[in-house]
Amino acid sequence: MARAIVYTDFDGVLNAFPEAESMPSDLYSPERAFRLDGEATVHVGSGAAYRIRWSSELTDALHELACTGAIELQWLSTWQPYTALLNERLGWNAQIIGTVQWYDPITYTGLRDGKYRAVARRVEVEADGDDPAPIVWIDDEECTRTRCDELRASAPVAPVLMVRPDSRIGISRRQWALICAFIANPRAFGDVTLDVEPTLREHEGHMGY
């Protein structure tokens, strides 16, 4: 089976949004969450600036998988026009990290369901290939039961793992272990697997880009 394709969002996945009032909670314990030791302000577009926070342990590990050829890593994020800035801040090699063009940044056409359509199209492409690649999709808002059911109905020929983190901590240590296990042996998983961090709370949207 071909190497896994990993589609990752940024806000709420790598860029976490911790809540100060919850800091004493075990939500942020080292056993559950990666330590957010990276922080920067990213200036985009017409003077707008966004503060981002990430775990270098997590982003370095993900980048290493891409560098060694274990995965094909693709940004699938509303940061689509500015992923070059994210690569720079995270220390990622822009030559091996792709960016999915899933919405029009001028008209915002495709913003509502473009992420799902991008993943669904890749599932279809892989179904027509001789060596279909498994897919990991990480998104704290769009990896839902409904999308899981829709992908399962398309009968993917290679396993798909959908991971929905808690945006307050981003990808948890448990979820990272699951992602690594899937990459190493996707055949051990079902056709479409949805993992939701148990502490996740529904929210209106992000304070990021």
Rank of each mutant, 00 (worst) to 15 (best):
A133Q: 04
R32H: 08
T144P: 04
R53P: 07
T109A: 11
E124K: 06
P81Y: 02
G91W: 09
S46A: 14
S25L: 13
G110L: 01
F34S: 12
D37Y: 10
P132W: 03
E57M: 12
C143Q: 02
I96R: 14
D130G: 13
Y28W: 12
V163H: 02
L62V: 14
G114M: 00
D166M: 02
R53G: 13
R164C: 11
Y82P: 08
L36W: 15
A48F: 04
V157I: 04
R152N: 02
E142I: 00
R164T: 08
L85Y: 01
A70E: 15
K115N: 01
D149V: 00
P81M: 03
E124V: 04
G129I: 09
S154M: 05
I71S: 07
I97G: 09
Q95N: 11
G129F: 04
D140A: 02
H63M: 12
D130F: 04
L90P: 04
G47K: 05
E141K: 05
I106V: 14
L111T: 07
L86C: 06
A40Y: 05
R117P: 02
V123W: 06
R112A: 11
R112E: 11
T83I: 08
V163C: 05
R121D: 10
L111A: 09
D130H: 06
Y116R: 04
T109N: 07
G98S: 12
A84G: 12
T59C: 07
W92Q: 11
A94C: 12
W102I: 03
E64L: 14
D149Y: 00
W75P: 05
T78F: 01
D149T: 02
V160S: 03
T144A: 04
R35T: 13
K115S: 07
F34A: 09
L73K: 13
A70S: 15
L86S: 10
R112T: 11
P30D: 15
I135R: 03
D26K: 14
T83M: 10
L76I: 08
G170R: 10
A66I: 06
S25I: 13
E72V: 11
D140F: 01
D113A: 10
Y28K: 10
A48T: 09
T144L: 03
P105G: 08
C67F: 12
W79L: 05
E142Q: 00
S167M: 09
G69H: 14
A33V: 10
P81N: 01
G69L: 15
T146K: 04
L73Y: 15
E72N: 13
L76P: 08
G47V: 06
G98I: 02
W75I: 13
E141T: 06
R164H: 05
D140T: 01
T41R: 06
E142S: 01
N87V: 07
R147Y: 00
D26Q: 12
Y108D: 06
D131N: 08
V119G: 02
T146E: 10
E31G: 15
N93D: 14
T146N: 02
G69T: 15
V100D: 09
D131V: 08
G170W: 13
A94K: 09
A49S: 14
A33Q: 11
I97A: 11
E126D: 02
R164F: 07
T146Q: 07
A40P: 13
P156Y: 03
P159V: 05
A158E: 07
N87H: 08
A70D: 15
T107L: 08
H63C: 14
